[in-house]
Design a protein around this nucleic acid. Structure first.
Lengths: 159, 159
DNA sequence: GACAATTTAATTGTATACAATACATTGGAA
DNA sequence: TTCCAATGTATTGTATACAATTAAATTGTC
């Protein structure tokens, strides 16, 4: 353990991203307060507004969330009148998430609100594209290294 | 509500960041499994390894977390032997977080492990610097727009 | 020097995340 | 046809996050 470099918080990309993620969530959650949507609820609605109905599994694939997170989240969305949860007729294991009339009605109001937020942020599409491209690269790397279930052994081997 | 643009999940920078953040947390949490540290616990240790003792408040400023999150997190770190929580003599309102001997001993092992993870990710310092610079800009914008408590009114005014 | 305003942690309540488990259903193999 | 592995959802348990409240200690002001 002779040649070890210190790990400084301010130099960690992970923390920069972690911190930005929390700020974004807070930003949109505030902006959507009039609709009573939390950030995860909002992105779930985004997916459903693109295409509904979807099964819990399909929704989870888009959001990268599992049923342990989605089941209670969707129950809250149902209680607040955004969606209905219906057991599939053709496959009783599946639960189909449908939009309510209220959700369809409010869609454009939410879209509009988000559009205004994006304007406020004042980022050019070039800036946004550039960041998203870089993020895709990082995420691919993280997936590759993580899905490689050898991560523990790989790291140990470097020792 | 005539001229509303659809909001597509895959075009949202916030989701890209949110998703990357979760992947990073999972990546480091796996890598640190031998130490039993979660990601938030790990970044708390990073700060304390830079400078300890710190009050809960000082730690929270660095991590952008409040006592509602930190108090239970620090109790878990204490239970696992990484830190001690000591009521300040000079100001009884404050709780000082000290490193244990074990934490000091294990510091370089953790630093080394993280260094290996960074190597596995294979990003150049230029790539990392570029992303972090862009993230700083986004975060500043989010802070500016959020701290501006007029956000709701501003947005409404656009209507 | 009393005391209201402020500061600091802790607590409470709600909402994610996610691993692990349980459970029902389904589709296919024997 | 019967059984079994796979699939899809729900549940359980642990650990964040964070707003709001409480409680204790300190400070500024007269």
């Amino acid at each position: 353990m002779a040649d070890v470099n210190p790990v400084l918080l301010d130099e960690q990309l992970c923390f920069s991203i972690y911190s930005a993620s929390k700020k974004f969530n807070h930003f949109y959650q505030s902006a959507l307060a009039p609709f009573g949507l939390t950030y995860p609820q909002y992105i779930a609605m985004l997916v459903l507004w693109e295409k509904a109905p979807l099964t819990v599994h399909q929704l989870g694939e888009r959001l990268e969330l599992d049923s342990g997170t989605l089941t209670p989240l969707l129950k809250r969305l149902e209680k607040q009148g955004w969606v209905t949860r219906v057991r599939s007729q053709t496959d009783e294991r599946q639960v189909l998430i449908h939009l309510t009339e209220m959700a369809t009605t409010k869609r454009d109001e939410v879209y509009s609100r988000i559009g205004q937020c994006q304007t406020l942020l004042g980022m050019s599409s070039e800036e946004i594209d550039s960041m998203m491209t870089e993020l895709v690269t990082v995420k691919q790397q993280l997936d590759t290294v993580s899905n490689d279930r050898l991560i523990t052994k790989e790291v140990d081997r470097v020792n």
